[in-house]
Amino acid sequence: MTPAIQTNALSRSFGSVHAVRSLDLEVPERSVYGFLGLNGAGKTTTIRLLLGLASPSAGSVALLGLPIPERRQDALRRVGSLVETPTIYPHLTGRENVSVLRRIYALPERNVEHALATVGLTAASGRLAREYSTGMKQRLALAVALAPEPDLLILDEPTNGLDPEGIHEVRELLRRLPRTSGTTVFVSSHILSEVEQTATHVGILHRGELVLEQPLSALVEEGGWVRVGVQDAPKAVAALETLGWTTADVRAEDFRVAVNGAGGAAAVNAALAAAGHTAFHLSLERITLEHAFFRATGSRGDEAA
């Protein structure tokens, strides 16, 4: 299967600042790909490079198997996007805003209706966009991106400004799209919990470099923490640490041990027994995306633990 997005050693520098360094992205078709990074990590620059809004200093981009910029027009005809703040013309109604794209692509009117209905704006479509709330504007921008029924949707922080209900709706929409219309969704965000609930694959960008890229399911099954209850936690911790285990969150009668794989809890129990400690409680805490993120980026290690 051709990846929906593929970059090869993609780089972009601004003077001496390397915004994106040798990026090798591979976004599978029909996936929801969460593109994570701290503010300033290079997410928006990457999206600009993908869409041809900025030229790379080195490397190449292919969208839906079509090289950019050689076949930019053919590729972008099949791509919907939302980059940074939504582009809404406040003097036009919601329907007219979507109709701008309808005219550009000579789309049938039903695409406008369908896009407005998908984001729940049919009833408000006759109102001027300047009267919309922030969340409604965000949803309208999504309707504009969805109007051409794209094969690939590239979204930069699409839940910015949305209330919890709006976030929930967008999340459900993004989850649904690959199933219902075969659309691949590439969504950048710094809200880890949001991506965790939506994405099938994640890529983590740190200081312009891709430090992790894999299916979310593999990531969360890779390891985690075992919370251990013992009589004398500090002594048990000392014993485990001499054996090379990593511990954290030590209290009087419990602590956490970092483990790899599903058999981690049993291994911890065996190690404790060998050191003469009896565990009265063992529970596996699966690794969250947040743990994976901070482990991959090497930041906030304490908080992650």
């Binding site: 600009r48 809004l53 027009q73 972008l76 996007s81 794209l101 550009i104 504009v144």
Partner: peptide, 9 residues
Amino acid sequence: KELFATSLP
């Protein structure tokens, strides 16, 4: 940015 992210030259 939205205009240039379409397929229009």
